[in-house]
Amino acid sequence: EPIEAIAKFDYVGRSARELSFKKGASLLLYHRASEDWWEGRHNGIDGLVPHQYIVVQD
């Protein structure tokens, strides 16, 4: 079951695997890939989301 998150800041992906998004964007998170990253989805694209840039919705 994906988790919803909201972007705290704009983020520009630094590689093809990283998602880019704007502050306030809604993201879906699948699972924690590491301490710093989530596997997630934004605008229909799957990729990595940096933990420091999002607020996970409970």
Rank of each mutant, 00 (worst) to 15 (best):
Y11C: 03
S26V: 12
E4A: 10
A25E: 15
L29G: 01
I3K: 11
K22A: 13
L28S: 13
H51M: 04
L48K: 11
K8P: 01
Y30H: 06
D46H: 09
D46M: 15
D36R: 09
R32I: 09
P2I: 12
E4M: 13
N43H: 04
Y30N: 08
I45G: 12
P2S: 15
W38A: 00
L19D: 00
I3G: 05
Y53L: 13
R32H: 08
R41W: 14
I6P: 01
I6T: 13
S20V: 03
E4N: 04
A7E: 00
E35Y: 05
D36M: 15
L27I: 12
R14K: 06
D46L: 10
F21Q: 00
H42P: 00
W37A: 08
G24Y: 06
S34L: 05
Y53V: 08
V55I: 04
D58L: 02
E18D: 12
Y30K: 14
K23I: 04
V56A: 15
E4S: 10
G13Q: 15
A16E: 11
L19H: 08
H42I: 13
D46W: 07
E35F: 13
E39L: 08
Y53W: 13
H42Y: 10
R17V: 06
L48T: 06
F9S: 15
S34C: 09
R41A: 13
F21K: 01
H31F: 05
S15C: 06
Q52L: 06
V12A: 13
I54R: 00
G44H: 09
R41F: 15
P2F: 15
G13I: 02
A25W: 06
E18F: 09
P50S: 09
K22H: 09
F9W: 08
V49A: 06
D10L: 03
I3V: 12
R32A: 06
I6E: 10
K8S: 10
D58G: 11
E18H: 06
P2K: 15
G47I: 01
R41I: 08
S34I: 04
R32M: 06
I45Q: 15
Y30A: 06
S15H: 15
L19V: 11
H42L: 07
S34Q: 10
D10Y: 04
E35A: 11
G47W: 00
S15D: 14
P50R: 13
E18Y: 11
E39N: 13
D58N: 13
L48S: 07
A7C: 05
G44N: 11
D58H: 04
R17K: 02
K8W: 05
I3L: 14
L28V: 13
W37Q: 07
Q52P: 10
Y30I: 14
K8L: 08
D10F: 04
L29P: 00
D58V: 06
R14V: 10
A7S: 07
R14S: 04
I45M: 09
P2L: 15
E1T: 05
E35D: 15
Y30T: 14
A16M: 05
K22R: 11
P2D: 15
G24S: 08
R17N: 07
R32N: 03
K22N: 10
K23E: 12
I6V: 14
I54D: 01
W37N: 04
L19T: 03
D46C: 05
K22Y: 08
W37S: 04
S34H: 05
A33V: 11
N43S: 09
P2Q: 11
D58C: 04
Y53I: 05
I54S: 02
S15F: 08
K8G: 08
E39Y: 07
I45H: 10
G13H: 04
D10Q: 07
H31S: 07
I6D: 02
F9G: 14
R14A: 10
E35H: 10
R17M: 07
F9M: 14
D10P: 08
L29S: 00
G24H: 15
A5Q: 01
G44L: 06
F9N: 06
W38T: 01
D10V: 02
H51Y: 05
I54H: 02
D36H: 11
G13F: 02
G40M: 01
N43T: 08
A25Q: 13
D10T: 10
I45R: 06
R32E: 05
H42E: 06
D46F: 03
P50C: 11
R17E: 12
I6G: 04
I3W: 05
A16N: 07
E39P: 01
S34D: 14
F21G: 00
I45N: 14
A33M: 10
R14G: 12
Y53N: 15
I54Y: 03
S26C: 10
G44V: 04
F21M: 05
P50F: 06
P50T: 02
I3S: 04
Q52G: 13
Y53K: 14
I54C: 08
N43Q: 15
G24F: 06
G13K: 15
W37K: 04
V12I: 06
H51C: 03
W37M: 13
L28P: 03
V49H: 01
L27D: 00
G40Q: 02
E4R: 06
L29F: 00
H42T: 09
R17C: 07
I54P: 03
H31G: 11
I45L: 14
H51G: 11
S26R: 12
E4Y: 10
G13M: 10
Y11A: 02
K8Q: 12
H42C: 12
G24Q: 06
W38L: 00
S15K: 07
D58F: 11
A16I: 05
A33Y: 15
V12L: 12
G44M: 08
Y11E: 00
D10R: 04
I6F: 13
F9P: 00
S26Q: 11
E1S: 09
I3Q: 09
P2E: 15
R14M: 09
I3P: 03
D10N: 13
I3F: 09
G24P: 02
N43I: 03
H31K: 14
G44E: 11
H51T: 09
A25Y: 11
Q52S: 10
A33T: 05
S26A: 12
Y11G: 00
D46Y: 08
V56F: 15
V55L: 10
Y11L: 02
A25T: 13
D36W: 08
L27H: 01
P50V: 02
E39I: 03
K22L: 10
R41G: 06
H31R: 13
G40W: 00
F21S: 01
A25S: 14
A25R: 07
G40V: 01
G47P: 01
E39D: 13
H42K: 08
G13N: 14
A7R: 01
D36F: 12
E39C: 05
L28D: 14
E18V: 07
D36A: 13
A5G: 08
G40C: 07
G47N: 01
G40A: 14
G44R: 07
I6N: 05
G44P: 00
R14Y: 04
A16L: 10
L19G: 01
D36Y: 04
I6S: 11
S15Y: 07
A33W: 06
I45T: 10
H51D: 08
L27S: 01
Q52K: 10
R32Y: 03
L27K: 01
H51L: 03
F9T: 13
Y11H: 09
A33L: 14
L19Y: 00
K22F: 14
L27Y: 00
F21L: 04
E39F: 05
A33I: 04
G13C: 08
P2T: 15
I3M: 08
H42A: 12
D10C: 06
N43Y: 03
K22Q: 05
A16Q: 12
A33E: 12
Q52F: 11
Y11W: 04
R17F: 04
Y11M: 03
E39A: 08
F9R: 14
S15R: 15
I54L: 12
E4T: 07
R14W: 04
K8M: 10
I6C: 10
